[in-house]
């Protein structure tokens, strides 16, 4: 019943959801939604560069996302990383990427594919890259979970316990860049941030501890990826946006339930 490419798509979606969920929790806790936006929008610039230089797209996206994330981290450390500045960077990166892609001569580029993802075109090689990236991100987060969580609560509290908050922040930045690079094929540059933030936010009302929130977010993200894939088949809709729409629907339901429970209790 399931064709091979559907299984590949399902595995790709599941993998990305698995890495994005715990990372997305940190993005939400640290109020870094715009940071995620800017990094993922810059991915398009990476695509253009990689194609222009005839390099693997994954590598180009990873390099540019990493550069962007480090740049923003450095700027925010100097106290000018305001909301507005992040907004400017996020959208400027996207616009520049679109312009750069249009300059590429002789390459027929499916721009839609990079903007919204092309999960049904995931090859076996893509799948290997995606899961290697996912494994790396999950391992990184599991290894640094406690120091990262402490630094998220309060950099000073972490420092007093012998944790270097800047180093933890940098590791998180690295994880974010890897996630963006592997997720671009699945949901596209425009919606990567959504995959980070929405499952985490939807998990919040059901969680009593940070770890529970990460696990619930992973379940919601995974279910949204699989469900979105099926829905996009049934209704012939673009897959990436369908996955994000489903996650958003889960968010609405869970938040309403949480609010109802809050007023009842």
């Amino acid at each position: 019943m399931l064709d091979d490419f559907v299984i590949r798509a399902a595995l790709a979606g599941l993998g990305v959801a698995l890495a994005a969920a715990p990372l997305g929790c940190f993005v939400v806790w640290r109020r870094m939604a715009y940071f995620g936006d800017a990094t993922s929008h810059a991915a398009l610039l990476g695509v253009a560069l990689a194609l222009a230089l005839d390099l693997p797209v994954f590598g180009g996206v990873l390099a540019v996302a990493l550069a962007m994330a480090v740049l923003i981290t450095a700027l925010s450390g100097r106290g000018i990383g305001s909301d507005a500045l992040l907004g400017v960077i996020a959208h400027a990166a996207l616009a520049l990427g679109l312009v750069a892609v249009s300059f590429l001569p002789g390459v027929r580029i499916d721009l839609m594919g990079y903007l919204f993802g092309d999960i049904l075109a995931v090859s076996a090689g893509d799948l290997a890259v995606i899961w290697a990236g996912v494994a790396l991100v999950v391992a990184l987060l599991a290894w640094r979970w406690v120091p990262l969580l402490t630094a998220t609560l309060s950099p000073d509290l972490a420092q007093a316990s012998g944790i270097a908050p800047r180093r933890e922040q940098l590791l998180m930045t690295l994880a974010l860049a890897i996630t963006v690079a592997v997720a671009i094929k699945v949901v596209g540059a425009l919606l990567i941030a959504a995959l980070l933030i929405i499952p985490a936010a939807a998990a919040r009302p059901f969680a009593r501890t940070p770890e529970a929130m990460a696990v619930i977010a992973a379940i919601i993200g995974g279910a949204s990826a699989l469900g979105g894939l099926m829905l996009s088949f049934a209704f012939d809709t673009p897959t990436g946006p369908t996955i994000v729409s489903l996650a958003a629907a889960v968010f609405v339901v869970s938040t309403s339930l949480g609010a109802a429970r809050g007023t009842a209790g």
Binding site: V28, L149, T152, L153, D156, L157, A200, R204, A212, M213
Partner: peptide
């Protein structure tokens, strides 16, 4: 060092029981 900061703004999106907080980082 046992450090007690002036205040600690825990983001509303971060679920945290007292026990979990006390177990950070060890």
């Amino acid at each position: 060092i046992g450090y007690v900061p002036q205040s600690l703004a825990i983001d509303a999106t971060l679920p945290l029981t007292v026990a979990r907080f006390l177990n950070l980082p060890s």
